[in-house]
């Protein structure tokens, strides 16, 4: 059986900062290596699309000017369709600006309230300084990772799945009751620097602030999204193995190199604190 999926890429012209297109390259290649056809359809300003055609969607971050240019189009033209599709189980990954636009609103630090689609129970408040740096978050629900290599050393506790990425945002995003946190921050700032939450999950939609790009170094998340999309298209009880294992040696090397480097730094800081405040 040939499997095929269709992905909506929201505003690739404007929302394409910090290498977020690496996420798309990753999804395309991991499908190609498994003989899954992944059709990518760009959704640009002024486009009219039927959201029920899509299995997956990707919405990246942009420059402030880029986000301002597309926000209105997104709300007016795509907002209702996207919201309905997300309620209906559309598999979506939204990073940074894309994540913010799915929430209720963005309150800028000058007090202007910019509306979002409101399908995610989150809101964002603009900060003056940017939160920038490498970040590791521990997933609350580890993805079933058939291809996951074991951690190469004892520095990383077994049985926990991490995501590693790079955040660069001034918005502080706060969660309401109708979203679950994707994970909690081990190192970095997270969604708002206050409550340790990193990313939000609602139905099959995941939003977070992780650039890096996110998916190339986190193949378990890439495969999780593809699994959800295949389940949605072909039914959950299919007898076929949904996703074949790939040789992810290089991907996991990249993943664990950064996770270990960052966790060691955390452990070192903790050690210093304990020595000065026993």
């Amino acid at each position: 059986m040939t499997r095929s999926l269709t992905l909506a890429h929201l505003y690739p012209d404007h929302m394409n900062i910090y290498g977020d297109r690496g996420n798309l390259i990753t999804l395309v290649q991991r499908c190609r290596w498994r003989n899954i056809t992944l059709r990518v359809q760009p959704v640009t300003v002024g486009a009219s699309v039927d959201w029920s055609d899509f299995d997956l969607a990707f919405f990246g971050g942009g420059q402030d000017s880029g986000q301002a240019l597309i926000a209105d189009d997104f709300l007016r033209r795509q907002g209702e369709g996207v919201a309905r599709a997300i309620e209906d189980g559309l598999v979506m990954l939204a990073i940074c600006g894309g994540y913010q636009l799915l929430g209720h609103y963005f309150l800028t630090h000058t007090g202007e309230r910019l509306p979002g689609v409101g399908v995610l129970d989150i809101h964002t408040i603009g900060g003056k300084n940017r939160l920038i740096g490498n970040t590791v978050l521990a997933l609350h629900t580890p993805f079933p990772a058939a291809t996951a290599a074991p951690s190469p050393s004892s520095a990383c506790p077994a049985g926990t799945s991490y995501l590693v990425g790079f955040e660069n945002h001034s918005g502080r995003t706060y969660h309401g009751a109708r979203v679950a946190a994707l994970g909690h921050i081990i190192t970095g700032y997270g969604d708002n620097r206050e409550d340790g939450k990193g990313g939000a999950v609602y139905r099959n939609t995941i939003g977070c602030y992780l650039h890096g790009s996110l998916l190339p170094k986190n193949p378990h998340l890439a495969d999780h999204l593809l699994t959800l999309a295949l389940q949605r298209r072909y039914g959950p009880s299919t007898a076929l193995p949904l996703l074949e294992a790939l040789d992810d040696t290089l991907e996991w090397q990249a993943h664990w190199t950064m996770v270990e480097r960052l966790l060691k730094r955390v452990a070192k800081k903790r050690g210093e604190r304990e020595r000065t405040h026993p």
Binding site: G22, I25, L250, E251, Q253, A254, T257
Partner: peptide
């Protein structure tokens, strides 16, 4: 180095041609 290896792999370079 590892990030670059992954970049080349997803750029279509066969992994056996990449040494980390």
């Amino acid at each position: 180095a590892e990030d670059m290896a992954v970049r080349l792999k997803y750029g279509g370079v066969p992994p056996e041609r990449i040494a980390v």
